[in-house]
Design a protein around this nucleic acid. Structure first.
Lengths: 196, 196, 196, 196
DNA sequence: GATGAATGAGTATTCATTCAT
DNA sequence: GATGAATGAATACTCATTCAT
């Protein structure tokens, strides 16, 4: 809203881009201020520390993804589509900064780990809610919902976070999703079409 | 075997302990030589670089775990038990250095990521072989074996790498394992008893 | 008197408190404005610089102490009591901000040195005047008055600036004062009763 | 003795010179390494921190002065001469680095304060011993020796640490020394001749 | 095989001060 | 009178690596 807020948002985007492309540890504060065209002092006027900047960058990402996930949840789409939609909303920065395979690089291990943790905390309840909706509608049938959803999310994070996956991965994922949630075979088949 | 080899093995163990307890990035070469009681020069006589040391440390761990997995595979235990045994062999450093929850800490993200990758490369073929054995015996029934095994391993890495898991996680894991591999319900029930 | 004056006096007190408790060098302008609840710009509206602030803080202290000393001098108390009274008036900030042992801490060395210098300049003539009054009355008998007074003040500053002194210090101080000024033994004995 | 020791001693001398001439706070580590012609790492190989360097510099000075004082004490000179000699040994760096008035400058307040403190701790017992020797010989007569010696040292530190003192200061100092220690008038008269 | 003194590029952070509004 | 966003020079310290002995 305020002028200072806009500035800070812009700085966050710049930091995000650098962190993603070179890794958090390999990005110096000097890199950030040079990219942003601001002075050292200005950076530290807006951010407590580099570490705090990373936290805020991740917070910004998570907020966006959580918001997207919430919209999907609120929509009146069929539940299986909601599930797929929420999971799809997790692809980090698909529009704004399409960096291929960045998170998987070892220099991004720290950032990836932090994002993973925050994402689980944030998205797990949303996805669980969708699953419960599906159970209420008789589409799914399972217990221990949060544990099952967590495993689903873990698989997404580790297998699909990059373009590295194959068609076979998708097949298995569809299969395991249906079985994890106790859905009828074919319930998630439409996913196949969503992934080009 | 040689004297120099023994020395290096000892250094690797010390480095491993430090990397695990403080994180790779937070462990300086000075920390290592102090803990080992050697001089800087001696360290660089044995290791090319700090990064190389990490690779060797991980290699040592993986070798041990792979050897354990191979022994399980060669045994004449029933296939489901082999599966469980191979997975159990992955707990890092269970005897030698049982450090609680260390790998999950953010400062260990890099090391964790490297271990995960190497573990997948090494153990995936072994576990796949066991699954194929199970299929030949009619215990399992599935296609896309490597992909399925990979998902299994990913889940183990992320959910069970710490003592943080619950009984419910175990239940879901048993269920998903059976379904992933196309086993009859109850095939993996014995796992429940293995985990206290 | 004016509104702006009052404001500045309040700021000076706050700065004084911070300088004394954390040391001048360890107190940032940010600390001051935060404690005062004002903006950066406001601070620089009132003060030329941080260094100037220190000078003004010291000036404020010295003024108060000099005024107290002057009142003692103008009173019709016996001269030895005047001497003791003037020296007693030097304890910095006894009512307003009684911070124990603060000036002796190394981080306050700069401030202490500046105060010492200004105090000598200001109080030395006043105390010398009292001594001359004593000489005129035949109570004291000495030459080189300013030099003797200076040594007296130096001792006070270094020995008594903290609560660290012992009863023996007091005894010696009484003795040395009498001898420095050429007073009859026992002239300053009453001081013993003043210090609890 | 060792090679590394010599190097460190040389570094200490260089640091001492810079601290004295520009003040501790105004001397950066970069200044020191530039003056010494060594690399940053070499500096931190020898010193823990800049603060530690100051401590060691002061320790080196104090050691030298204390050694000089001890030699005076061990000599068979008359006791009043010993007293004067010990006090004379306190002039910091008279041969090696004759920097006039450096310690009194405000930028040296911290260093001065630290030196003063350490000097008191170190020299006070030596000087007290000399005074006791004088008492045993019937030259001095006083009680509360450490307190009296401390005041003597404080006066020296504050009045004579610079070339700023006058002949009158010397007169008063001779007078007060005799009276403080209970010596016969004239006992310390020879001091007058020592100070040009 | 082993030592340890020397290196120097790299880094995050601080802080007094300015000035347009 | 008052604000607070912006500045940028300054600074202490780290650490993997080298190499002559």
């Amino acid at each position: 809203m305020k002028k200072g807020e806009r500035r800070k948002q812009a700085l966050l985007k710049i930091a995000y881009g650098l962190f993603i492309s070179r890794g958090y540890e390999n990005t110096s504060v000097d890199d950030i201020i040079e990219a942003a065209g601001i002075a050292k002092g200005t950076y530290y006027y807006h951010f407590e520390s580099k570490e705090q900047t990373l936290e805020e960058v991740i917070g910004m990402m998570i907020d966006q993804e959580a918001e997207a996930a919430r919209q999907v949840l609120r929509s009146d789409a069929p539940v299986p589509l909601k599930i797929a939609g929420i999971i799809a909303s997790l692809r980090p920065g698909q529009e704004e900064l399409p960096i291929e395979g960045a998170l998987m690089k070892p220099e991004n291990a720290l950032m990836h780990a932090k994002i993973k943790r925050r994402l689980l905390e944030t998205v797990l309840p949303l996805l669980s809610e969708a699953v419960e909706e599906g159970i209420a509608q008789g589409i799914f049938a399972c217990d221990n919902i949060p544990e099952r959803v967590r495993m689903l999310l873990v698989i997404c994070n580790e297998i699909f976070d990059e373009g590295q996956f194959t068609q076979r991965d998708v097949e298995v994922f569809i299969d395991i999703t249906e079985k994890l949630l106790g859905a009828k075979p074919g319930t998630m088949d439409f996913v196949r079409a969503l992934i080009r």
